[in-house]
């Protein structure tokens, strides 16, 4: 019994003097391991008289648990200090620059186009592309332009032949759809348009347009306003209001200019966004769509205009210049 107490006290003394968790692990092994000096005492139990065996066993177990508990306590207290030291040694300057993974950056016009596609797509408008180099009949004739309309002049439109022009508007998709598709339908496109214009901060000979339209039974100016409202709020924020003002385009009747107003932009002033209206009955009739049964609306706007307004970009030319100092501002 005395032997048990001695070994125990020896262990306790060593635990008290230990300075590191590593020393403690060695003490653990020395006394409590399989062949440790405390655990090992049990081997001598066979030599004891039978009546002392239970007492001796209980004494060893009690000593073991006492040592184990002390060991755990001491380990825990040393660990705290050691971790604190480790943390100090591993201190980094968190203000050093981060290292970004190299993913590609989407062009700001693409980001805008994606948003447009998501919004109009979710309202059931099917996206469809149409040619940049367009037939005269789809760009002008099929859109109810009178034969001598100034927009058709060579000074305003890029001609390749008498019958081929660089489309001046994405509206050229409309006659293509009317020609081949029975109503009802909802369509939109986003693409390049071309005008023979002098280039400055607010003009470019090439820019992008959205054109969106639908034909169904009973389509009205209220449906146009509702759709534009949802679209404009998705692009510019939930407070946006939409206003119609009469305007003239050959392919709509009634034709309007639509403006938006939001407290977030231009102090809530009305800002014009694009043209819209009910698809001109002359056009529907030209493509054998019964105007007694069907009507439709259409609206268009410049894609560049959206980020220009939303972000205050003041020069249209940036969009085609591919200067990374500009493009990297829109991640």
């Amino acid at each position: 019994m005395e032997q048990v107490t001695n070994v125990k006290n020896d262990a306790i003394a060593k635990i008290h003097t230990a300075k590191t968790t590593e020393e403690l692990r060695a003490i653990d092994l020395e006394f409590l391991g399989k062949n440790g000096s405390l655990s090992g005492l049990m081997k001598g139990i066979g030599a004891l008289p039978n009546d002392q065996k239970p007492l001796f066993g209980a004494a060893v177990n009690s000593a073991k648990s006492e040592v184990e508990s002390l060991l755990n306590q001491k380990t825990a207290s040393l660990k705290t200090g050691e971790l604190a030291k480790q943390f100090e040694a591993e201190r980094i300057d968190i203000t050093l620059p981060g290292r970004a993974p190299q993913y590609g950056r989407e062009h700001v016009l693409q980001q805008t186009t994606n948003k447009i596609k998501r919004v109009l797509g979710s309202m059931g408008f099917v996206y469809q592309e149409s040619p940049e180099l367009e037939r005269f009949k789809y760009n002008f004739e099929g859109l109810n332009y009178p034969p001598d309309h100034p927009a058709m002049d060579e000074q305003d439109t890029f001609y390749v032949t008498d019958d081929l022009v660089l489309r001046t508007q994405c509206t050229a998709l409309q006659p293509r759809v009317f020609e081949t598709t029975e109503p009802p339908f909802r369509r939109f496109t986003v693409g390049r348009t071309f005008r023979n214009e002098a280039v400055d901060r607010t003009h470019n000979h090439t820019f992008h347009q959205v054109d969106c339209f639908m034909v169904d039974k009973g389509i009205s100016m209220a449906h146009l306003k509702g759709t534009l409202g949802v679209f404009a709020r998705a692009m510019f924020g939930p407070e946006v209001k939409v206003r119609f003002r009469p305007d003239f385009f050959p392919f709509v009747e009634p034709g309007v200019d639509y403006a938006i107003s939001t407290p977030k932009l231009f102090n809530g002033k009305w800002v014009e966004l694009g043209g819209a209206g009910l698809i001109h009955p002359n056009i529907l009739e030209r493509y054998d769509i019964d105007t007694k049964v069907y009507s439709g609306f259409a609206f268009g706007l410049g894609v560049e205009r959206i980020p220009m307004m939303a972000y205050g970009i003041d020069d249209l030319r940036h969009f085609f210049d591919n200067d990374f100092r500009f493009l990297s501002q829109f991640a």
């Binding site: 979710s122 099917v126 169904d216 389509i219 100016m221 509702g226 119609f244």
Partner: peptide, 20 residues
Amino acid sequence: GYELIPEQLPIGSTPIGGPQ
């Protein structure tokens, strides 16, 4: 007055929209 036109969403056949 166009300002008196209410906002309404078209009803009727709505196909799956977006790119195809």
